[in-house]
Design a protein around this nucleic acid. Structure first.
Lengths: 329, 329
DNA sequence: GGTCATCGTTAGAGCGCTCCAATCGTTGGA
DNA sequence: TCCAACGATTGGAGCGCTCTAACGATGACC
């Protein structure tokens, strides 16, 4: 059961531990014969380096810690994938943890991850208090994705939520809609930005913005629509808080016997795999998630290399993906 | 930038490093005054223990490595959550990694995780070759979830796929359906078990089983239905490979102008959040995922404690969740 | 008053690795 | 022939921690 160590390999290959170390790190200054002997011995023993011992000795980590706020939201799957790929290319090993959408859970997750002294910490739509980010940023490069943070030690990567909302409104206005309602994301990350963008864009079109409180959940979307209908609020189009919220809205509309897009048009946000399902076909705002993941890793790498100490603030432009839930008024 | 170490704390508190270590591990044999002094010093310095150094010194890990084959499938989110909770209770820290559905990616992920010498390895629906599992199981407790493995060193937790398919068939037969087609999961984990269950259950009802090749994807489901329709195969109900596959089937049926459940009934598998969406309302087979996650962690813990060396083979009973995609013939 | 537990505390070795400086064996130029 | 220079190899210190054994101080007991 005991795993072989470098000393075991060294002994078997008839060389010193230091030489084995060099071979394992693919140093060029090892003669081909010795290298072969060491590799053979390692293979015989089933040896693989102890990553933790390595990091302790090196005093430098190759672990990129990533916190996902909600594993249930498919939005994150794409970003995580992009982060993973970029991390691999940068020679970093990604480890993931989740806080289950609860601040306390996220805090715990951040603390255990920091216990591993990672090379960097990437937080995806975190809901954890700023103080935690600040404390972490003292000793580790920290990047927040889809969360606005003004701390000097924390880099940020977000999409331009105002522009995203504007895209949705422009699209709907172009289709002749005048009574457009925004379902607001409440406490959720970036929701205030999206709301502001909606209001401004509506005004720019000379239209009266109506914002209905909601949240980033299916139930929230359904409830908001039910309220609108009960109140008799006139509307022919909805700009939902995000895709899941939009799905809830679609359900509520269907329950009320309203057809989409004939009676009501609906626009989501995030372009998750949910929206792309042919069965749903949601028109939605797409964030360049792959790019966002890449930039997040790049920001960490720059800080590690000491190439930068000032914070970066990436704000990416979203695009509109038109599917089947929006149509002419 | 350099993080404080135990020696820094010891010096500041005027005690030895060993005493600080005892305090950090909440040993009862430390006087209250010293404990307070140490904790104060640690707080002043912003000290937190170096998890890797600790594990190296302890020669025992508290890390539970979890491999997720596909982050995009919401099926995993629930299991991961359950595993996370159970791990926390067992005093283990979960780290997650993903192989992006590719055997090579999973192999890589498994190797980097093993580099951390985790206390255990849990693989969720892995597609990695058995040899990799076997090699890992030599030095680490390994549990495979939703994958049948016959290795003595690998514990397994699966649902009873035959029973699941039988539930679906019984339900449909009870509704008067006779022409039922199974969309097969192909290479995917557990698909052969589900297929066998389908065939047996159909025969038990005196019905002729029809199995159409497909896969665990939306596109696969849509393509399979399109083929069935093009071939003129008669059917009034579908037992899909899983929920995503069912969603694809629903889309293809809608495209063909067929109504669900009036013209065709559809049953999924996994009871993912997708199925639960009111907009979808998929009748589906539910696996006790929370329980599965818990059992997986329990299996690891038993092996760590040395309480067991023989493999466990948990096979859990699924249940049927009836929603709106199935109806009387 | 001496012995022996007991308790809180500490020195020091060691976990598996990296890295630096030192060493060894060649080689080539003077 | 000698020595500098170079490449390949190695010993040993050290990363931040835990753990064992030993320590001094205290108090109980005969």
């Amino acid at each position: 059961m005991r795993r072989p160590t470098m000393d075991d390999v060294a002994q078997r290959a008839g060389v010193s531990r230091a030489l084995v170390s060099l071979v394992m790190r693919e140093s060029p200054k090892v003669s081909p014969e010795r290298r072969a002997a060491v590799l053979a011995a390692a293979a015989d023993l089933g040896y693989s380096p102890h990553a933790m011992a390595r990091q302790l000795a090196q005093r430098t980590s190759t672990v990129l810690a990533v916190l996902v706020s909600d594993l249930h939201n498919p939005y994150f799957a794409d970003i995580v994938e992009a982060v993973d790929t970029a991390a691999r290319e940068a020679g970093l090993d990604m480890i993931l943890s989740t806080g289950g959408r609860r601040p306390a859970g996220e805090r715990r997750a951040v603390e255990t991850m920091l216990g591993f002294r990672p090379a960097g910490l990437v937080l995806l739509s975190p809901v954890v208090p700023q103080a935690v980010l600040e404390a972490a940023s003292v000793s580790t490069p920290v990047v927040a994705v889809e969360r606005t943070v003004a701390l000097p030690g924390v880099d940020t990567v977000t999409d331009d939520g105002r522009a995203g909302s504007r895209l949705a409104v422009d699209h709907l206005a172009g289709l002749g809609h005048r009574d457009v309602v925004h379902l607001d994301g409440g406490q959720g990350a970036q929701s205030s930005t999206r709301r502001r963008g909606f209001v401004d864009a509506m005004r720019a079109h000379g239209l009266e913005p109506h914002v209905e409180p909601s949240e980033y959940t299916e139930e929230g979307g359904a409830a908001a629509v039910a309220r609108l209908l009960a109140a008799g609020t006139p509307f022919t189009a909805l700009v939902a808080a995000n895709d899941i919220n939009a799905i809830g809205a679609l359900s509520a509309l269907a329950d009320a016997g309203l057809r989409v897009p004939e009676d009501v048009s609906v626009v989501g946000y995030d372009n998750t795999s949910l929206a792309a399902m042919r069965h749903v076909g949601l028109t939605t705002v797409d964030q360049p998630r792959a790019e966002m993941g890449r930039l997040a890793v790049a920001a960490v790498v720059e800080r590690i290399a000491g190439r930068r100490t000032a914070p970066t603030r990436h704000r990416l432009q979203p695009t509109l993906v038109v599917r089947t839930t929006t149509g002419r008024r």
